[in-house]
Computed example of a mutant assay.
Amino acid sequence: MAGIVIAQTTLDDEEKAYQMARSAVEARLAAGAHIDARMTTFSWRNDALQHERGYRVSFQTTTEKVAALAAWVHERHPYDVPQWIVLPTLAASEEYVAWAVKETTAR
């Protein structure tokens, strides 16, 4: 049986986050996507501490689609080194897994 993962990236623009989430679902690379409310991030860039506002996009996808989703996100992401974190699920209902497989299958 297929497995489910949550894959995450961040963007500094709400409209870009919206477009990436929607487009990944339309492309059937993710069964669904959530955009978290604006958050504050701190990170080092060019030897300086940066403070930015951003949006986390969490994609619900299958283990079979996660590599294709990663390539798709990296191709479209505006950052040189985008955040890309894949979180495994310890458990998911059979119904949810079936839904995710159905929604990530080309029609």
Rank of each mutant, 00 (worst) to 15 (best):
W99E: 00
K65I: 03
A92G: 07
R38Q: 15
A7F: 05
R28E: 12
S23T: 02
I4D: 01
P88E: 11
T61Y: 07
G54T: 12
H51M: 11
V81W: 05
D13H: 06
T9G: 08
K65S: 05
A48S: 13
R38G: 10
Y79N: 04
R45V: 10
A7C: 14
T40A: 10
T40M: 02
V25M: 00
T9Q: 00
T61G: 07
R38E: 14
T62M: 06
W84H: 05
V25S: 01
A21N: 00
I85F: 09
V57C: 05
Y96P: 01
A91F: 08
E95G: 11
V66Y: 09
A24E: 00
P88G: 09
A68L: 09
A24F: 00
V86H: 08
Q19R: 15
L90Y: 07
D36P: 01
P78W: 11
D80S: 15
I4R: 03
E14C: 07
A71W: 03
A91P: 01
S93Y: 04
E75W: 00
V25T: 03
N46L: 06
A68R: 01
L69Y: 03
K65Y: 05
D12L: 14
P88F: 06
T61W: 08
A27K: 09
E64I: 01
A48H: 08
D47G: 04
E15V: 15
E94P: 04
D47E: 15
T9N: 08
V57P: 02
I85H: 13
Y18L: 06
L87M: 13
E26S: 12
W72N: 04
W72T: 02
A7Q: 14
Y79R: 01
W44F: 14
M39Y: 02
W44R: 12
E52L: 11
V86F: 06
H77W: 02
T10C: 12
A98H: 11
V57G: 03
M39W: 08
T61K: 07
F59E: 04
K65L: 07
E26G: 08
Y18N: 10
H74Q: 15
W72C: 05
A70L: 04
H51N: 14
V57Y: 02
H51D: 15
G32Y: 08
T89I: 13
T40D: 13
V66L: 04
A67P: 00
L90A: 14
L90G: 12
V86N: 06
S58T: 15
A37I: 01
A48D: 11
A27M: 07
L87G: 03
S58Y: 10
T61H: 05
E14D: 12
A27G: 03
L11F: 02
Q83F: 02
R56Q: 14
